[in-house]
Simulated assay, not measured.
Amino acid sequence: MAFACTTSRAQMVAVSTDVLMDALQTPSVGAELVVCERSSISLNLFGNHNPWGKTMKIVGIQPEWRYYFSGRPMHRHFVGVGALGTQYDITWKGKVYDGYAVGLGLTFGYVIPLSSRVNIDLHAGVGLVAYRQKEYFESDNYDQDYSYGGTAQANASGYCLLPTRIGVSVVYILK
Rank of each mutant, 00 (worst) to 15 (best):
G99T: 01
P163W: 04
H123M: 09
F3Q: 13
Y159H: 15
M21P: 03
F3E: 09
D22Y: 09
A83W: 02
P73M: 04
R9I: 06
V34A: 15
C160Q: 12
R66V: 01
S40R: 05
S8V: 09
E37A: 04
Q11F: 05
S28R: 06
G60P: 02
A152Y: 07
Q153V: 12
K134C: 07
S39H: 06
G47P: 14
Y97V: 03
G109I: 02
S28E: 05
S40F: 01
H75F: 08
Y110W: 13
D18N: 15
Y88H: 11
D121A: 11
L24H: 04
L33N: 04
S139C: 03
C36W: 03
Q133W: 01
I58V: 15
E64V: 13
E37R: 02
G94I: 03
L45Q: 06
T26H: 03
S116E: 11
A4P: 03
L106M: 11
W52K: 15
Y131V: 01
V111K: 12
I90E: 05
Y142H: 08
D18T: 03
N48D: 14
Y97G: 04
V15R: 09
R72T: 13
N48E: 08
R72K: 14
L174A: 01
G167T: 00
S28K: 03
G105Q: 02
S8L: 08
G109C: 05
L174S: 01
D145K: 15
G71D: 00
L45P: 14
Y131H: 11
E64G: 12
V171W: 04
L161A: 05
E37C: 02
Q11P: 14
P163D: 00
H49W: 12
A4V: 10
L174T: 00
L106K: 03
M1I: 09
M1P: 12
Q153N: 07
G167H: 02
M12N: 14
G60L: 02
M74N: 06
R72Q: 09
V29Q: 06
Q11E: 03
V170L: 14
R117D: 08
A2C: 06
R66P: 02
Y110S: 07
E37N: 08
I58Q: 11
K57R: 15
N44Y: 03
Y67R: 02
N50M: 01
Q144C: 06
F108E: 00
V35C: 12
R117N: 12
K54E: 12
I173A: 04
L45M: 10
V118S: 13
V13E: 05
T91C: 04
V13Y: 11
F46V: 02
V170A: 12
C160W: 08
